[in-house]
Simulated scan of single mutants.
Amino acid sequence: MVVKKQFSSLDDLIKNTPIPVFVCFYSNQCPYSKTYAPILEQLKAQMGNQIQVIKISTDKYPQLAVKHEIKASPTSLLFIEGELACRIKGVMQTPQLIQYLQKFI
């Protein structure tokens, strides 16, 4: 299950987590973002402790969207050891998403 967490800084979370961090930027106004929620749940369930999955609302945190150059929803970023490893625009189904991410993990 994707866990709802509070954190003081996304940068601190990305840099201080030993496992890859998958950050999905979404918008409540975007219908594609809504379809991505169950895919993220499946991603976390199937990859377990190999990856941390985080969702960030661009409506609530527009400054983070600007900082990470998010131009469309959903857009996901994979960070490994604090560095951006890949950017995914749009929605991928769970099997394709896992296969794609495993190239980096």
Results as ranks from 00 to 15, higher is better:
1 M>V: 05
1 M>S: 09
4 K>A: 04
4 K>V: 08
5 K>A: 06
5 K>H: 09
5 K>P: 02
9 S>P: 03
10 L>A: 15
11 D>C: 11
11 D>L: 10
11 D>R: 11
11 D>H: 07
14 I>F: 09
15 K>D: 12
16 N>R: 04
18 P>G: 11
20 P>E: 00
20 P>Q: 02
21 V>M: 04
22 F>T: 01
23 V>T: 06
25 F>L: 11
27 S>G: 15
27 S>P: 12
28 N>A: 11
28 N>C: 05
30 C>E: 00
30 C>L: 07
31 P>W: 06
32 Y>D: 08
32 Y>K: 15
32 Y>E: 11
34 K>L: 12
39 I>S: 00
39 I>D: 01
40 L>F: 02
40 L>E: 00
41 E>V: 02
41 E>Y: 05
43 L>E: 01
44 K>T: 04
45 A>F: 05
45 A>Y: 03
48 G>W: 07
48 G>P: 05
49 N>H: 07
49 N>A: 06
50 Q>R: 12
50 Q>P: 11
51 I>K: 13
53 V>P: 01
53 V>K: 00
54 I>V: 14
57 S>V: 00
58 T>Q: 14
61 Y>A: 06
62 P>V: 08
63 Q>C: 03
64 L>M: 13
67 K>W: 06
67 K>A: 12
67 K>G: 08
67 K>M: 13
67 K>H: 06
68 H>I: 08
68 H>A: 05
69 E>L: 15
69 E>K: 15
70 I>S: 04
71 K>W: 14
71 K>Y: 12
72 A>H: 14
73 S>C: 06
73 S>T: 13
74 P>Q: 15
76 S>A: 15
76 S>H: 02
76 S>F: 01
76 S>L: 11
78 L>A: 15
79 F>V: 08
79 F>C: 11
79 F>W: 10
80 I>Y: 09
80 I>E: 08
82 G>L: 10
82 G>A: 13
82 G>S: 08
83 E>I: 09
83 E>H: 14
83 E>T: 14
83 E>A: 13
84 L>Y: 13
84 L>C: 05
85 A>N: 02
85 A>E: 02
86 C>M: 08
88 I>S: 15
89 K>R: 13
90 G>S: 13
91 V>S: 11
93 Q>W: 02
94 T>K: 10
94 T>D: 11
95 P>Y: 10
96 Q>F: 05
97 L>Y: 01
98 I>E: 00
99 Q>F: 14
100 Y>L: 09
101 L>G: 05
101 L>Q: 03
101 L>E: 01
103 K>E: 09
105 I>E: 00
105 I>Q: 02
